[in-house]
Design a protein around this nucleic acid. Structure first.
Length: 467
DNA sequence: TTGGGG
């Protein structure tokens, strides 16, 4: 067995994956195409670790897992795109209940990662310490690149969800673009991802009479994103928040770079305060997809079509038209999304939107009037892109409620607006609400000349609650 | 040492 000897010639030999699998406990050299990248995490020992999956011609479908350990996250492989090529020198083949896998031993193994695209350069974009490139490597890399052109390794799963199809609970795969990443607490990350589709509306369970002390939040992050960040987000389609907050392990999520299309595997979805939230688990995986990934291209194209069609910025589930619960003047004005509203470049502006009213403050119509007798209400509006507070004041309230109806009539209108089921029992506040899509006119303005953007407010006008 | 399938 030549590989038990310290034979320099062995360094020039790459084994096919299928042959390496028969070389248990031996040091081998491998070269393969990366199809999957596990999230880096802190190991239970002293190291950081991650697992990637590679394929080659001998094992094109299932591939083999390679486990890396390193003293810190920086020393682990940072794969820029699924489909890239990794060269592994002196790694150990290990047998395990789950089959054979590869161990990268930091004492003597080394790696180099190359772009996978045919025609790209032969210098690696990341090398481990101890790696020494050789001229002969080029031949193998060129060979693998050529192979991937005709046998595109399956990097993106066919069994993935769009945000428009998400459901609570079951683990699934999501293909999406990372828009923004931030660390909210030590080791706790919030990712903002998007695929151009609208996540489905969900029932609201909060109690309206608790809205003052415990208001329905506008977003899941305790510190709202800055206007600068928000303005870089697309204005059509849901921006989903994803968190590793319930995962005990420390995950290397700083490696997720905004702008990349990513496939997340084994993630969960939850609803928090009526907002969808993606949940990263320790067994979640992600892989960056190449920019020309078919699905990414499809999402981009759909988005561009929607963004161009100025008349169709209605939520995906609002078909064919919003409910007739409200009516607006200015029927000729096209609908925009709440993200359009939040990112509009001028402070003073007018908009027409399709929204759900998910909460009101005060929670009961008996309190809708200020002591002076004029209307004063705060609505929490949402569409698939954002939530905002919008106020109804004075004359706009008279228009909205058709004057000053009786309290019974007001309660009926309020229930219709908030999607509260009318029941005989007094506890209708306990029931989840399912607000209908309604249209409204909004105007924006500032209340402080010294802090124009920080003091921006939204008001409802020229809108009538038909009931 | 650590982790590793579906």
């Amino acid at each position: 067995m030549s590989n038990l000897k310290s034979d320099d010639n062995d360094d020039y030999k790459f084994l096919r994956i299928i042959d390496a699998m028969a070389s248990i406990n031996q040091k081998v050299n491998l070269i393969g195409v990366i199809t999957e990248i596990g999230i880096s995490k802190q190991s239970r020992g002293t190291d950081c670790c991650c697992t990637i999956k590679i394929v080659d011609e001998s094992n094109a479908s299932s591939g083999i897992s390679v486990n890396f350990f390193a003293e810190n996250f920086e020393k682990l492989p940072h794969v820029e795109s699924a489909g890239d090529i990794i060269q592994l020198v002196r790694v150990v083949m290990k047998s395990h209940r789950s089959g054979v896998n590869v161990l990268f031993d930091k004492k003597f193994s080394s790696f180099a990662i190359y772009e996978g695209r045919e025609g790209s350069k032969f210098s690696p974009y990341q090398v481990s310490s101890k790696f020494h490139g050789r001229d002969q490597d080029k031949k193998f890399i060129a060979g693998l690149r050529k192979w991937t052109v005709s046998h595109r390794p399956e990097t993106a799963s066919n069994d993935f969800l769009s945000l428009k199809d998400i459901k609570q609970g079951n683990q699934s795969t999501l293909i999406c673009k990372v828009l923004h990443v931030c660390e909210v607490k030590d080791g706790e990350w919030l990712l903002f991802v998007w695929d151009g589709t609208d996540a489905p509306p969900v029932n609201i369970h909060t109690k309206l009479d608790e809205e003052f002390d415990n208001p329905l939040p506008l977003q899941l992050e305790s510190i709202p994103l800055s206007r600068n960040v928000l303005c870089k987000f697309p204005t059509v389609g849901t921006v989903l928040r994803m968190t590793n907050g319930n995962c005990n392990e420390k995950l290397g999520l700083h490696l997720l770079k905004p702008g990349k299309w990513v496939q997340f595997k084994n993630i969960n979805f939850e609803v928090r305060y009526g907002l969808w939230c993606g949940i990263l688990l320790s067994k979640s995986k992600f892989s960056f997809l190449p920019d020309d990934d078919d699905h990414a291209i499809h999402c981009r194209r759909t988005y561009e079509e929607q963004a161009e069609s100025k008349w169709d910025r209605k939520p995906f589930t609002c078909l064919p038209w919003p409910s007739k619960v409200t009516d607006t003047d200015h029927q000729d004005v096209p609908f925009v999304t709440l993200m359009d509203v939040l990112t509009y470049p001028e402070v003073i502006a007018k908009f027409r939107c399709v929204v759900r009213v998910v909460a009101t403050l005060p929670g009961h119509p008996r309190d809708f009037k200020a002591p002076c007798g004029t209307y004063r209400i705060r609505l929490t509006l949402e569409d698939p892109t954002a939530r905002i507070h919008a106020y109804i004041y004075a004359e706009d309230g008279v228009k909205f409620f058709w004057g000053y109806p009786s309290i019974d009539a007001m309660i009926k209108k309020h229930n219709a607006l908030l999607g509260v089921e009318e029941t005989d029992d007094a506890d209708s506040d306990e029931k989840p609400r399912n607000p209908p899509w309604v249209e409204c006119c909004l105007c924006s303005y500032n209340i402080d000349e010294t802090d124009v953007w920080g003091s921006i407010r939204y008001r409802i006008f020229d809108t009538t609650l038909v009931g």
